[in-house]
């Protein structure tokens, strides 16, 4: 699918970053307001897919040389590691911990180990959806 639409390409360059920022925002906001790993991951995917539509898959692959299968594996590892970390602290599997910290710039912030798990979810969702789209798209 080769497109050569200057309007689309120019707009995409801007819109992609807006979507990506929104994705990151919605991912971190997920614990308190609507959002989270699933949605954040899907939004990130749409941003990349938009790029792929505006340019073509080889170009996007050159810009983002990510092996999405590895990304999926890393995400799964993240999730499992967070879940099993609790065993080391001798509490049942999957017990999360959180605390409040006073960070510079952010003020009082709560840090939650569930966020780490959510990062795993995020990575898996991005990895899987991108793998699917890329494999199907590349197959001619």
């Amino acid at each position: 699918m080769r497109t050569n639409d200057v309007m689309l390409q120019t707009a995409t360059k801007v819109v992609t970053f807006i979507i990506l920022m929104f994705a990151v925002h919605i991912f971190f906001a997920g614990h308190y307001t609507p959002g989270g790993g699933f949605i954040g991951g899907l939004l990130t995917t749409t941003a990349i897919v938009l790029l792929m539509l505006a340019f073509d898959i080889p170009t996007v692959k050159k810009v983002l040389p990510i092996n999405y299968v590895v990304l999926t594996a890393v995400g799964l590892l993240f999730a499992i590691a967070t879940a099993s970390a609790s065993i080391i602290f001798d509490v049942p599997f999957f017990t999360h911990a959180y605390d409040y910290y006073d960070l510079p710039l952010f003020g009082e912030t709560s840090l939650h180990s569930a966020l780490l798990f959510d990062i795993g979810v995020y990575l898996v969702v991005v990895g899987v959806t991108m793998t699917i789209i890329q494999t199907i798209g590349e197959d001619e």
Binding site: F38, L42, I132
Partner: peptide
């Protein structure tokens, strides 16, 4: 439902590739 939506997507795309 949230998890089901994502799973349904994965399954649908699997089916599509299978059909293809």
């Amino acid at each position: 439902i949230l998890t089901a939506i994502v799973i349904a997507f994965a399954v649908t795309s699997f089916f599509l590739v299978l059909a293809y």
